[in-house]
């Protein structure tokens, strides 16, 4: 009998934990939004974060896009060859990159690279009382630490997503023409034929949402740090895992709404 009670106790505890987390996250988002109305954005911080999230990530995002595009071209070839539609490889690569892989992979890479850094930086500031120091100096940490990161992420994710998609398509083209020995003009012509402008901007909408999700979750988790370096490590891991899950979940929702 006791083990049944234990089981229900665990379920109850988990539900309470989830409700508590959701409530704290909602209050956090509300405080961030309020800070936007109370203060003007700290432009120096915003610029620094845009450089960190955007400019410093160009190489890794480009590299990710390149290899994904190349693999996509190669994989599509094996399937397309069977049914004799190799001319469709171009649109397959381009649509996959702009609608799906560009935004999602960019968001996941930025979560790993910058989301983890946001959580650990804010977490370290929390446990070393630097956030308390900010508050005592009448500086709202949401305005000073959170909003520049969230806005920078919101601005830079679509730009990085475009770069990733472009380089991915280029990688697909290189494989199509030089490794598979197919006609490169067909690759480009078919992209023009089958790709619509909405494929691009809907992909960009996804990137904006992913940017907001990853920066919000990562900064929020940073504030939850407690208990020294182990606590910082724990919230950093949680930030990356939760952001990735929310991004993939949001991807499904957005895909079903937008396309």
């Amino acid at each position: 009998m006791n083990f049944i009670l234990d089981y229900f106790e665990k379920i109850g505890f988990y539900i309470l934990y989830l409700i508590n987390e959701l409530g704290s996250l909602t209050i956090y988002i509300w405080n961030c939004i309020l800070s936007l109305f109370r203060y003007s954005i700290n432009m120096d911080n915003l610029f620094d974060q845009m450089v960190f999230i955007g400019v410093d990530s160009f190489f890794i995002i480009g590299l990710t896009g390149l290899f994904v595009g190349m693999v996509l071209s190669l994989q599509s070839y094996y399937a397309a060859k069977i049914v004799g539609v190799t001319y469709m490889i171009g649109p397959t690569v381009a649509l996959s990159m702009t609608r799906e892989l560009g935004p999602v992979l960019t968001a996941l890479m930025i979560t790993a690279r910058c989301g983890s850094s946001m959580a650990s930086e804010i977490g370290t500031m929390k446990i070393s009382e630097q956030i308390d120091a900010l508050e005592v100096m009448s500086v709202d940490p949401y305005y000073f630490l959170s909003m520049p990161r969230i806005i920078a992420s919101m601005i830079m994710l679509p730009i990085l997503s475009i770069i990733s998609s472009l380089i991915g398509i280029l990688g697909g083209y290189v494989v199509y023409k030089f490794f598979l020995g197919l006609n490169g003009t067909v690759f480009v012509d078919m992209i023009y034929k089958y790709m619509k402008l909405s494929d691009i901007y809907n992909g960009l909408i996804k990137a904006v949402v992913f940017g907001i999700i990853l920066a919000t979750i990562s900064t929020y988790k940073g504030y939850e740090a407690s208990g020294g370096s182990k606590g910082v490590g724990r919230v950093t891991t949680q930030a990356v895992v939760l952001s990735s899950i929310y991004i993939l979940f949001a991807d499904y929702i957005l895909t079903s709404i937008l396309f």
Partner: peptide, 30 residues
């Protein structure tokens, strides 16, 4: 809080900026 100053146990200096910027921080903010 602008009327208050506080010295934290371990200083709570902002570790990503140098000493000059740490001390200049309240001046730049207010």
């Amino acid at each position: 809080r602008k009327k208050f100053g506080m010295v934290f146990q371990d200083g709570a200096l902002f570790d990503s900026i140098n000493i000059f910027e740490n001390i200049a921080f309240p001046l730049r903010q207010h």
